[in-house]
Design a protein around this nucleic acid. Structure first.
Lengths: 184, 184
DNA sequence: ATTTTAATTAGATATATATATAATTAATTA
DNA sequence: TAATTAATTATATATATATCTAATTAAAAT
């Protein structure tokens, strides 16, 4: 189900009158005027709602003598909400891709031949650069300051600034034993 | 789940931004500003939505260093929509009860000692009375006009009017073989 | 203590929509 | 064919709400 369809479905369900219509039809098929009487609304209003409901295949109708009977399409609702939320969304993918593309752009701009050309001034960009450098460290392991300096120096001469910013950005933490990565 | 709660839940799901938030949180926990960036909205707007979402226990939050992380409450959504529709609703019960009470009132008013005192002038009331009389007939069986008259005469002398109205109200149908109940 | 920054709240605005009345259509009965 | 009636559509209105900017709060860093 597309995100758009999910929203259309939830919009239909998010209305007292429509929910009552669906609940009534879950018990038995009914025609417009009967629903109008039960819900204490005009037939016009019921028609309006049934149209919306049929647009999302929530109900279908058939003629019987005088009346147009409406019935619930149970299949449409035989879904767990959580499954809908977990369906991968094109939107989310797009967001993810945009983010990754942006990171790549920043990294390409500031790294050359594996070296950091300069430390970004914008915090957001520096953060990305620091996260890239953090990959050189093993999660869980404790490093001496000297070891940290050496690893960072592979990227840039100013290991002091970078080491300090790793701390302030909460990518690493330290105590008297040494430095370690904070799991993100 | 009460009907009111169901509506509150569906209202939350029926919005593009909130659905995207939930979908993002279904993948991993996130903080306000990150969501704002991913959805291209202001943090204020994200806050607004997260508040609504937490009101229905869709998300919960925990502090971590700088940020308030939000996570999805999966339990809340581990439900089939159809099950919600089939939960018996107080509203529907009320409607049903009101309808039954009204029928009883009409029947009590027009019947006495199993006899019909008079034929209701209002169509709606006559319909109820006719449905009551129709119970004297077996579904599926074909009756001669004479048999029909006798059965109706148990209720009221004017079996002609009642027999005719049974037809016009589509409670019975007829052809050259005789009369029979139309299943309602 | 001061500054910074993430998060929330307040207030304003614009859009969406549920509902009713009135008009129209479609189908059945007389 | 005319009359009745169920259902739908058109139009208008009032309410709800998603979003923004600006202000405030809360927490952390300097």
């Amino acid at each position: 189900m597309t995100e758009e369809n999910a929203i259309r479905m939830f919009k239909c369900l998010a209305d007292k009158s429509r929910l009552q219509i669906l609940k009534s039809l879950a018990v038995e098929d009914m025609y417009v005027e009967l629903l109008a009487e039960r819900l204490n609304l005009t037939p016009a209003t019921i028609s309006f709602h049934l149209r919306k409901l049929s647009e999302i295949d929530a109900v279908k109708s058939y003629k019987t003598q005088y009346y147009t009977m409406y019935s619930l399409c149970q299949d449409t609702f035989a879904v767990k909400i959580l499954d809908i939320l977990k369906e991968q969304s094109d939107e989310a993918d797009l967001q993810e891709k945009r983010e990754q593309a942006y990171r790549k752009k920043v990294i390409d701009a500031f790294f050359e031949y594996g070296k950091l050309k300069s430390i970004p001034a914008q915090r957001k960009k520096e953060r990305i650069v620091l996260e890239e450098i953090a990959k050189a460290f093993q999660p869980g392991r404790i490093y001496s300051e000297r070891e940290v300096n050496i690893l960072i120096a592979d990227f840039h001469d100013d290991f002091c600034t970078i080491r300090r910013d790793m701390i302030s950005e909460r990518l690493m933490d330290r105590d008297e034993r040494g430095y370690w990565l904070i799991p993100q």
